[in-house]
Amino acid sequence: MSLIDIRGVEKVYEMGAETVRALDGVDIAIEAGEYIAIMGASGSGKSTLMNLLGCLDTPSAGHYQLDGVAVETLDDEALAHIRNHKIGFVFQTFNLLARTSAVKNVELPLIYSGTPRSQRRGRSFRALERVGLADRADHQPNELSGGQRQRVAIARALVNDPSILLADEPTGNLDSKTSEDIMALFDGLHASGNTVILVTHERDIAEHAWRVITLRDGKVLHDELTERGRAGQAGGGGGAAHAARPVVSPDASARPGAPA
């Protein structure tokens, strides 16, 4: 069974008289250990999808099975547990607590998992080491560069050893050099066995992944392996057993005025 299995997922926003179908019947299966980039035009539903995958939001229709559990049946408590233990979420805007040191920011998920105080600092420090920011542990967010802030956010996502890392445009606010550093981090996390799913607008960022899912108007337009993915599969590494094939949504291209 797949790690992530979503079927016929829809997300509809009612905006007064208007209804926005942010996701319009999405089916995706993701195996443990995959490295996936989600692409698509602005407004195509990438963030909406990520939020659903991260159990931050619930679909209007359809099913989401995570690790064999039907997410729509879970209550607040169980969802919080999943967000805390299974998923590390990295935001485009970092979302660090202001006036709070890097290491304290990284500690946050440990507080909610009930980790004893004595272990928290050590684990947070090691997470900061993994992202190469141990020397800035006591700096506050406003004393850090954008790239450093994103590393803190990644360390926070990693600190509870989640199996899935979700990142919504993690390099969206960073220059290309810093973006490459951050991507090197994700590459390493994938290599060490994590499932990594990230949203990006940039082709060369997406090329880091093994599989690219392209959305358009809330539907899956393409779902294909990248060069790396093909090479990786040929080499038998990475753990992605998925045989990606291009999916062309029949009505997506037919819709008039749809953004390209």
């Binding site: 991260g54 931050l56 607040d76 919080a80 979420f89 607590l97 946050l108 998920p109 926070r156 509870n160």
Partner: peptide
């Protein structure tokens, strides 16, 4: 509000 959202996204329950 954003802080609350963030806390929830990293695993805070309602009662936390």
């Amino acid at each position: 509000t954003r802080e609350i959202g963030l806390r929830k996204s990293v695993g805070a329950r309602r009662r936390d």
